[in-house]
Design a protein around this nucleic acid. Sequence first.
DNA 1: TTGTATGCGTTATCAT
DNA 2: ATGATAACGCATACAA
Lengths: 355, 355
Amino acid sequence: MAKEGRTARQSDIARLAGVSQTTVSIILTGRARENSIPQSTQDRVMAAIRELGYVPNAAARSLRGGRNGLIGVHTYEAVFPVTSEDYYNEFLVGIEEKAVEMGVDLVLFASTQGADGTRSIYGSGANRLRLADGAVLLGVERNDDELERLASEGYPFVFIGRRDTVSSLMPYVVPDYDSALRDVVTQLKDVGHGKLAYVGNRMRNNPQEDRLTAFTRHAELLEIPTTTPQFLSPADLDTDRVAQFIKDDVTAVLVESWELAVALSDAAASAGIAIPGSLSMVCLDIGPRSLAVDNWSHIQVPRRELGRRAVALLMDLLDGRITNDHHELLPVTPPSFATIARPRPAPTSATRIDG
Amino acid sequence: MAKEGRTARQSDIARLAGVSQTTVSIILTGRARENSIPQSTQDRVMAAIRELGYVPNAAARSLRGGRNGLIGVHTYEAVFPVTSEDYYNEFLVGIEEKAVEMGVDLVLFASTQGADGTRSIYGSGANRLRLADGAVLLGVERNDDELERLASEGYPFVFIGRRDTVSSLMPYVVPDYDSALRDVVTQLKDVGHGKLAYVGNRMRNNPQEDRLTAFTRHAELLEIPTTTPQFLSPADLDTDRVAQFIKDDVTAVLVESWELAVALSDAAASAGIAIPGSLSMVCLDIGPRSLAVDNWSHIQVPRRELGRRAVALLMDLLDGRITNDHHELLPVTPPSFATIARPRPAPTSATRIDG
DNA sequence: TTGTATGCGTTATCAT
DNA sequence: ATGATAACGCATACAA
């Protein structure tokens, strides 16, 4: 049993077993064979270890080894949000899973939050991230300058996502939006859609731009006509807008967020436009779990896997197996056919009845 | 900018600022005044610190016995469970909130999970908790010996919950189940209930025992008859069991978990027994958010506040403001009247009509 | 086969 | 006012 107040250290064991502290260390690190330490000595040492309940001191090991086995997680928003149903949670599940596998611990940087509620790496004076061996960063807030500085200081980190201006400086994992939108556009073309509309959020961020770029590219490649992309708030996606889609011969709409999907659903219902009968809809985002978004066709960002890969990449980076220019794409699950269907022929066109 | 590859240490700063490493340490630990170090020196040192992006080495500080601003969080189950709708999340929200307020960072101990999936502080070779200044522990698994050992080693930690055998050794925060069950029994008595049943889980744990003890105590104090407590799996809570309640003149049932509440709801429906018309039901647990448990009368454990208080207590403990015998009860929100109602008079009893 | 000496980064004591 | 120096617990190169 451990003595009150103080934990046993290697020298305690050494004294009890009648050997030197070095011998204890050798045995503990599994190098007894190569140092040809007799079994009798090993037995005595192991007995002493059990008797004293010795456990290695993690801080001392870290100090000695240069690593402390701590992986930082920095988000620009609270990790455990009050408005749960939480976007980050799924990433964190993956991050924790991988951390468990790798035998490292996670540091959640709460101290980086200032009085105003915003988080910043350098805002609080020192870069606390340095407490950890490296870090996984996520968050949609734009803090490119901080990322750039962090990279220029040689701090090892992996970004989940992509920032066009700075992300060449660091390893990142990112959903493969290009392939995803190729799949979506192909799916729509295959069931017979002739003209597509794209509705984005008013506030733009990098992942959204990636999706739009990919959409535009593949619509062109597949020679499907599109309307000019529109950037709307959910309130603007009303019945008038839906009527305009119909008037423009649009048969499928891609919406960038689930808020827009809700708005489009509601507006179409009000306008008497059946989804997916008269208008197919694809959501390019995944909503909170509480919404039954499985009733919509939507692409599915592999958030858990992104978290897992980010941790794996960070370990690779720390061990020198990859460099800062290592970037990875993870496949995005294509949409179901919930709100994708063959468009109803326009009333004016001739219809042929088979059978 | 910092040199690539190695993080700055105090001696780097000292060299850059043209002072000794000791001077740097003195300034960093806020003892510049008492050592009468000139402002000019301080300024030079601070400038060097900023320039090199210096951050104290956490492991070294811990080893030395100082603080590193890391608060550990150890749960005996995964923090981010796959089966989310997550019990722990709410605690963690509180823990993170308080950590932000206190300006400390959180270490989630993932490395304590062994190959078999179970978590143990000492099982994984080293006691990694020592990397942090102290820790908040939670989890229902029974690991009293580990808690005892941790306490005996003088490691500062706070437990969320209570373990009758060992919790006198450490500070803890715990829901005030005694008051909660006084409230529940009082509520039931006030609306006219005459006989209560208690259904607990087959697998017992400490919080559950606390609730049962409190229930028994207050039922006696308030002189309300009860049936012998039953410990059932949800499958055993069937229509037969409901029929038996009715036969025994039970008018209200306390169930210990939401699984049991679901079972009772279903069984009563099948048996044609109206809840709360013929049988009132109080759930002594809170289920996952996805279940609309607000439709049931249930007590509400203040999980977020428990998290917040635990962190606050840990800081108090570290600063010597409290000792290991400091224990705190947090109020539990009493149940609504969703499934508590005046019991319907039995068919055989005389009813008087006022009017 | 085992032991001695050293350094990891920090803080604190004691000289200067 | 500043600088050596030792100690925290561990791992390792080197000696014996």
